[in-house]
Amino acid sequence: MKLRVDLPQSPYDIVIENGSLGKVGSWVKGLWKPQKIAIITDNHVGSLYAEKVKLGLLDAGFEVIVFDFLEGEASKNLKTVNKAYEFLVKNGMTRSDGIIALGGGVVGDLAGFVASTYMRGIHFLQIPTSLTAQVDSSIGGKTGVNTPFAKNMVGTFTQPDGVLIDPETLKTLGKRELIEGMGEVVKYGLIEDVELWQELQSMDGSVESILAHAESIIYHSCNVKSKVVVEDELDNGVRLYLNFGHTIGHAVEATAGYGKVMHGEAVAIGMVQLSRIAEQKELMPAGITNDIREMCQKFGLPIDHEPWNKEALFEALAHDKKARGKSIKTIIVPELGSAAINQISLEEMKEYLEK
């Protein structure tokens, strides 16, 4: 399966195909001229797939180097970025060379940021290996790293030249790592794709069912993401719909300590918390919070976080990129399959953090 992200300045394709990792050489050869390629990955994914990707690229006539870093959200910072810059410089990477991000969302965000800032920008490709990255973070050109103040506070908008998704890589994920990706999948069903929501309803929530439906749910999710990105590349309008559950979710991630609560888990917590208050305010339909809660629980996603420190969460929210002056844009679901922006004051946002 193939999807086109038809941006005017930088269009590219998303390839979704079981076993496609074995064809990485021909895929890259169809996109790039012979050059030096730096694979950026983490130590876990690198041990599983870096050699396979490297050999495929070497066979296709590319020169290949590999940079890896300690896996986890805690490594997604400027310190790791500086280590990557040093590695690229020492290996003679130039503006005519490229980077491949091989891994989950942390790798994709960090490698994309490095590619977009090294020598003012070199081209890059995304090969996401986690469900979260395959359905969400590898598409759309958002790159970024965390600071002690907020998640993804420092970043760029830079589109990849292509995205290669091999659902078979999901088989090597741990159970928790696979399940957390379903937080983003559930979100896509809620904000736009009723057919996806119905498919999720038909599943029994097991790891086996996720793997069996992987190609389909990845395609549906990427289709929503790509359409929204094309309509609003720089995140000023409808692309904000993709942030349903993220405003509170990012605050949960930041206050818990990066990596303690995984991104998809935090999104699930954020969706349930925001929906509960929005439903009370009659901004979302009666019963939808329970539907979201039951869907998340079916797939083993958390719906709450302890300890719930309202003051610390609000402090993190104040640094959110969606905050503008004394207001913040939250996303609500007025009905299943649609989303809307609900701009409120930061003061009112405190109500959405009440348990």
Score class of each variant (00 low, 15 high):
I14V: 15
I99D: 09
A38C: 15
E265H: 12
L131T: 10
L313R: 01
K23W: 00
L313E: 06
R276P: 05
Q297H: 02
L242P: 07
E351T: 14
V24G: 01
N243E: 06
G183T: 10
K29L: 12
S226R: 06
L346C: 08
L131W: 05
Q201T: 11
D136H: 05
H250F: 06
Q273H: 13
V230A: 14
L234A: 08
T169W: 00
T169Y: 00
A251Q: 05
M119A: 10
V252T: 04
T41R: 04
N91L: 09
Y352R: 01
L131I: 10
T156Y: 03
G162K: 05
R276T: 15
E199W: 00
L78Y: 01
D235T: 08
K329I: 13
L211N: 02
K2I: 14
T41S: 13
N77L: 04
V224L: 04
N290C: 03
T330M: 15
T158L: 04
G270M: 08
M153Q: 14
Y85N: 06
N82M: 13
K83E: 15
K90N: 13
T255N: 00
G249L: 08
S96Y: 07
K76P: 08
L31H: 03
I341N: 03
K2E: 15
L31E: 02
T172N: 09
E253Y: 03
V207Q: 11
V5C: 06
M262A: 13
I288L: 14
A214G: 07
F314M: 14
L3H: 01
Y49F: 12
G174C: 01
E208K: 13
V106I: 14
E315L: 12
K281E: 15
T247S: 09
A323M: 08
I218C: 07
G249S: 06
M262W: 08
E231A: 15
P307Q: 00
I165A: 04
M119D: 10
K54V: 08
Q9F: 13
V107C: 09
I288R: 01
N236Y: 03
V261R: 04
A340S: 14
V81C: 12
M153S: 02
V224M: 01
V89F: 10
N146K: 10
I303K: 00
S10W: 10
N342Q: 14
P307H: 00
R176K: 13
F157P: 07
G337M: 02
V106W: 04
G249C: 08
A340R: 10
G61M: 07
E73W: 03
P167I: 12
G337L: 03
L336A: 06
T330C: 13
R276L: 12
E73Y: 02
D68Y: 12
G72Y: 02
K329M: 06
E348C: 02
I165F: 03
K175A: 14
G249F: 03
I139K: 01
L336T: 10
Y12A: 05
I344S: 03
D13Y: 09
L164Y: 05
L211Y: 10
I331T: 04
V89Y: 10
R120V: 12
D320E: 10
A340W: 01
A150I: 13
L125Q: 11
Q280T: 09
S138I: 07
V28N: 00
V45L: 00
L102I: 08
R176V: 13
H44N: 14
I165M: 03
L7Y: 08
E195G: 13
T289K: 05
V238D: 00
G103S: 03
E354I: 12
G237A: 15
K310T: 15
L190N: 09
